[in-house]
């Protein structure tokens, strides 16, 4: 994203070279104080001792990470065995997020492709239609989803009315509802990057393939997909990352009975558990995972750009 227009040349200049430190200073200061320093402080807190029922004691401790990785039994006095509780929670989050991502891809790719192949003047209208729901409050969207899906909700009423089912489908409070909610929350993030990639795609490549009697499916798979892969990966990441840390969907749509990472962390600060260092440690682990993922993505992007020449 950074050097998107670098090829233009005349747009990226050094006109204000002398002033650039001053121009950047407000951003540096604001973000250092309000983002970097808090993350640093969170790292510090993750190595402190928990205060009984919330808060911290300023004593160095590995207890939070030990709790995360070590299963010391119900009473905390057994030797360290691998702790599956939090791995399970992380795994569930990854799995739920992945399911939501695949669902978004299945719907989002054809949509993005369809939009990108509309006449040029119609494309912004389609993009506009896709993005509007994203700008509606996430909370409202999640609540709307719950309302739509509930046992006595409009969806079940409609299905029963049409005679498709006899008794209401139990969707709310299941993992599927959470996936559906995540999918719905972040779908536009999947569509937009893929759309941008397909729009740049040179369709004469497809034509050439067709001239060589490649089937349409082969053309899609062998020619188009590799060309738009960066867009697809970007879309997947944009859906996957926020899904993994989400807390509204499992809370409202999942019945709060199966923790995801977001709810686990929330519980440490606002709920029953009150274990701040552990919440900070879980946040650090989540953040590390996300940053590694983004770094791999950046490397992949750089590679793709190099390959393009």
């Amino acid at each position: 994203m950074a050097g998107g227009a670098a090829s233009g040349g005349s747009a990226n200049t050094d006109t204000y070279k002398e002033a650039r430190t001053w121009l950047l200073l407000p951003a540096w200061v604001t973000l250092s104080i309000l983002v970097l320093a808090p993350v640093g402080m969170m790292l510090v807190y993750s190595f402190l001792t928990k205060e009984f029922r919330g808060g911290v004691v300023w004593e160095f401790s590995f207890a939070a990470y030990d709790q995360f990785f070590c299963d010391r039994g119900l009473f905390g006095d057994e030797p360290c065995a691998i702790e599956w509780t939090y791995v399970t929670i992380f795994w569930r989050s990854i799995w739920q997020a992945a399911a939501a991502t695949l669902l978004s891809l299945a719907i989002g790719f054809p949509t993005a492709y369809f939009i990108a192949t509309r006449p040029e003047r119609m494309r912004p209208v389609w993009v506009f239609l896709i993005t509007i729901p994203y700008w509606v409050n996430l909370l409202i969207r999640t609540v709307s989803m719950k309302f739509l899906l509930r046992d006595q909700g409009p969806l079940n009423d409609a299905l029963i009315g049409m005679g498709l089912i006899d008794s209401p489908l139990h969707i709310v409070n299941t993992n599927f509802a959470v996936q559906l909610g995540l999918f719905y929350s972040y779908l536009p993030f999947m569509v937009l990057p893929i759309y941008a990639a397909v729009e740049r795609y040179n369709f004469s490549l497809s034509e050439a393939a067709a001239d060589l009697y490649a089937s349409k499916f082969t053309t899609l798979r062998r020619i188009l997909l590799p060309a738009v892969k960066p867009g697809v990966i970007a879309g997947c990441i944009l859906v996957f990352v926020p899904s993994m840390g989400s807390f509204l969907a499992p809370d409202l749509l999942g019945g709060a009975k199966n923790f995801m990472i977001g709810s686990l962390i929330e519980e440490q600060f606002k709920g029953n558990a009150g274990n701040w260092p552990f919440g900070a440690a879980a946040s650090m682990i989540l953040l590390t995972m996300v940053l590694i993922l983004l770094m791999l993505f950046a490397r992949q992007q750089a590679k793709a750009e190099k390959a393009e020449g």
Partner: peptide, 14 residues
């Protein structure tokens, strides 16, 4: 890039 829940926790702690 930072998940929202992480920003929230970090800001609260800060």
């Amino acid at each position: 890039m930072v998940p929202e829940i992480v920003t929230a926790v970090a800001t609260l702690i800060f």
